[in-house]
């Protein structure tokens, strides 16, 4: 499972990188979202998968899955949400003000940057 996940994570990162390098501001925003998904799965996989039951004391299990990566990811999910929302607003405001989603055209001109 970990091997399979490694490839899934790689594909997510690849897709995210490609999107972030593109010219369209919408693609860049989506790229950051995809990147965060990849990063979350990477953290989880690094900790080892299915090592036991869910990390709840009530389960009374002999082994639990690692709770630490889960706590880190929970924090990361919420932060990623805040970042995505901010980017989204930034993107649509600039589209409305400037009438383009092309990063090439959004560049500051000479002497005005």
């Amino acid at each position: 499972m970990e091997i399979l996940m490694a490839f899934i994570i790689g594909i997510l990162f690849m897709s995210a990188t490609y999107l972030m390098l593109s010219r369209s501001i919408v693609r860049i925003i989506i790229g950051t979202t995809v990147l965060s998904h990849g990063a979350h799965l990477l953290i989880l996989t690094m900790g080892g998968l299915k090592g036991g039951s869910a990390p709840l004391v009530g389960e009374n299990a002999s082994a639990y899955t690692d709770p630490l990566p889960q706590a880190l990811i929970l924090t990361a999910i919420v932060i990623a949400f805040g970042v995505t929302a901010l980017f989204l607003v930034l993107g649509y405001r600039s589209y409305k003000e400037l009438g383009t989603d092309n990063m090439e055209k959004l560049r500051g001109t000479e002497g005005n940057d």
């Binding site: 869910a54 709840l56 004391v57 009530g58 929970l74 919420v78």
Partner: peptide, 8 residues
């Protein structure tokens, strides 16, 4: 605090 859930 005991089962899945919390502030988030």
């Amino acid at each position: 605090h005991y089962t899945p859930g919390g502030g988030f």
